[in-house]
Design a binder for these strands. Structure first.
Lengths: 219, 219
DNA sequence: TCAATAGTGTCTGTAAGACATTATGGT
DNA sequence: ACCATAATGTCTTACAGACACTATTGA
């Protein structure tokens, strides 16, 4: 096996699973049960299993489905980390994905979990994570932000039906800054990704119109 | 070895090496000498050699240095392609990089080449390439364009000293559309990546001021 | 003086930020 | 009537595209 390691690198996937709640943007961490980095917090990760996985992204989905039992969220590739020292077991490759989960599915997720998991603020000062996962988390965050800066709507982080105010809060949580309501909504007028519904969110004040993502929308 | 393939995927790198000449944006293709896809045109590629490479990007540089003897150009990751069928030898991973080469280094490159190589228009209608390299080429082109659209200057495609008109031509070749000179230069005024020189490119008309990239500039 | 390209000025429409105002529900 | 939030309007500024114009060299 040691010989094999010199010919073939360890191949795995890491996933930064994001969600937005009232406290802002969160990312899921898991407590590693085994070495290396046993009992350290880390991004959910796993090794590629060629007989099970049809692609690296499929491996990422399998890892998520295994570590956290939940409907599969939106997954996108960020980049690939590699080198002889990032994993003490030897030359390794890890392709990083980010995944987006709507807030209303968080509870089901955490409840069914067997290992220790934790939602932590994704924007707060750095954590102490296993491997190069701190760097990976920053890379995933950059990728997420650059898409939102590029005027793509992070609808995968919202429930099926949502108000424009909810959408704005999610964007603000990702970008880490306040957005102007008027300008934000003006931009949304020209978006083909939003579908206007004839339903309204009722509360102790004026009802807000509900929207949903366009059929086939992908972040 | 067959058994190994079921446990460990084939790991390699592919490189889309771009340059810009008077005919527009070009990409380097090599004629494959060995199976699979012998005698097919393909992007320069190679398998990862853990004992030689310190990262996937280093592997990409090694592949370039090996296939085309030239000073190492700028290299950046695009994305990673994977799956059981993209290579007939079995489950495989290929991390795609693009590389940028200034026009004035092309000649030295082609001359020293042993295998058959070819510069083809990167923007013309699709080619018939080995593996999934057509898709990869499109992905590399998208990545390149999105950076230039994002107002990053592709200075790695220019000689050390260049005129603003040359810079504009390079941007136009990448984007595939004409840019307005006035607006283009107005934007450049605010760029910290350009350094004004006290030299001028002389010709049969008004001389043009020369510029160079900021120290430490990276595309 | 002319050709050719470098470099600048001006006008206009679009879009964003800031901020005020109106609208509409519940209580 | 009042509160809270939704939704819209207005003003200003910044910037990009279009296009005309001026500047400077060699021939």
């Amino acid at each position: 096996m040691v010989v094999v390691r010199e010919l073939f690198p360890l191949v795995g996937v890491d996933v930064a699973l994001f969600c937005v709640d009232d406290d802002g943007l969160k990312v899921l961490l898991v407590k590693r049960a085994e070495d290396p980095y046993a009992r350290h917090w880390a991004l959910p990760s796993g090794v590629l299993k060629p007989h099970l996985d049809d692609s690296l992204m499929a491996a990422a989905r399998r890892v998520l489905a295994h570590k956290v039992s939940v409907e599969l969220p939106h997954v996108a590739e960020v980049s690939t980390f590699s080198g002889p020292t990032r994993d003490p077991r030897g030359w390794s490759i890890a392709t990083l994905f980010y995944a987006l989960l709507p807030k209303d599915k968080i509870n089901a997720l955490v409840r069914n979990k067997v290992e220790a998991v934790q939602w932590v603020s994704a924007t707060s000062t750095r954590h102490r994570l296993a491997f190069d996962h701190e760097e990976q988390l920053q890379a995933a965050l950059r990728a997420l932000r650059s898409r939102v800066e590029g005027d793509v709507l992070p609808l995968h982080l919202l429930p099926e039906k949502f108000t424009l105010t909810q959408l704005q809060k999610v964007c603000e949580a990702i970008l880490g800054r306040a957005l102007d309501k008027s300008a934000f909504r003006r931009r949304l007028k020209g978006s083909t990704d939003l579908v206007e519904l004839d339903e309204y969110e009722r509360g102790p004040q004026r009802p807000a119109q509900l929207f949903k993502a366009r059929e086939g929308f992908t972040f």
